[in-house]
Every structure is written in structure tokens, then in C-alpha cells.
Amino acid sequence: MARRDEARAEAAFMRGDVGVDGGATEETQDEAEVEKGKAREQLLRGRAYLGREFLTWLLWRTETGGPLVEVEGEGVSVLFMGRVVLRGVAGEVTEMSAKGTLAPYSEQVRHSLDRGLLVAQARLRFTHGEKEFEATVDSEFLDIRAGKLPALMSEEEDDQLSERLFLMEQLSAMVDALVQDFLSVRANKRWSKSVVPAMKEWMRGDEQGADALAKAARARGRDARSARG
């Protein structure tokens, strides 16, 4: 029996599984660390954090209501509704899901955002003129899932196809317009100077945060007016 144990130990040493002291050569990684590492890799892969920052910024922007961008000469308003998925790398929680009609704007979600989680997936309602669209938008690829288009007006099958493709493109254009708006803010110095602090204050839920949000909105309006002028 002892011989067999010896042979086993020797074989393990020859394989490189154990050192001369009989201890394991490689430390087994902590499960939490492995998970965090994966979450971190997911966040950085292809700059996926940009998509999450975009949805988080959009959530903040939609708190004020009103049109955010213009598509085909008409304003687009966005409302987060229903389920929202948050992901992060900083704390113990790497993913969190909140469900409820007003869950995205809830204090719990805002506080989670304040602790380093970002919006990874959300159900959005887009209002464009009289038309309403709904879709779940994923931050990584900006895929559209379970999208609802406005009711079709055409009766003929061919026309319905045309209309459906047209509406799908409108939905797509709205997402793109919002991303472009985000990128113009994101690449600007204003991002770290005023936008991020205003978002953080809103996450903390202080009155000042709301003031800062209104101030930022007014500043954006001024910027837009001066750009048009």
C-alpha cells in the first residue's frame, strides 16, 4: 500500500502537480476572484464599458423627460420601463436585475449605480412624434430584442413588409442618434467635469443632484441653441 502511495506521489511530482515538499504547485484560484476576472474581461472586451456607460447616461438623461434627440425632424423621448440589468466589477455583486414598472428609476437601482454597477440591459420605450416603439437594448452589441413596432397602417402584405422595414429602420436610427449624442458628450471635457459629477449626485439621490441635472440640461440646451445659431 505504502509503495503505491509513493508511486502516486512520484507520478504527481513528475507531472508537475506537486513540488518537492509535496504541496500543490499552482494555487487554486479563489472563485470570487475568477468571477470578478470574467466580469472585468467582459467589461473591457471591445470597449463594452462604453455601451454600459451609454445606457447609464441615458437613464440619467431620461429622468428629466422630454425629447433627447431629433430624428427626421421630430423629437425622440425615451423612458426606461420594466426590467433593468446592472453589471459591475468593483464590488461583490457582478450582476443585478431589477424588475418593476419604475424599477430603473428607483432608489435601489440608483444606489447600486453609485456603487459601481452600470446598466447592461434595459427595456426602453421610444416616443417619436405620435409613434411609440419598445425594445430591450443590450449594451454590448446594441442589439434590439423583443422590439414592438407601432401598429401597421398598410393592409397589403407587400406594403406591410415595406412599412415594417421602415419602422425597424426608424427604431434603429433612434438608437444610433442617442449613441451619437452620448459620444459627443463622452468625448468632450464636459463629461468628467460636469456630466459625471451630476450623474453621481443623481445616483446619491440628493436634491443637489436634481439641481445639477437641471443645470446640465439647461447647459445642453444652450449648447444646442448656440450650435444652431
Partner: peptide
């Protein structure tokens, strides 16, 4: 200009 925002992510990357 598009590095991760440490304040939002909760850590410096």
C-alpha cells in the same frame, strides 16, 4: 478620450 470612467465603474482600470 474614451477610456473607462473610473467614477462610474467604481475603480481605476
Amino acid at each position: 478620450a474614451l477610456g473607462p470612467t473610473a467614477e462610474l465603474i467604481g475603480m481605476d482600470l
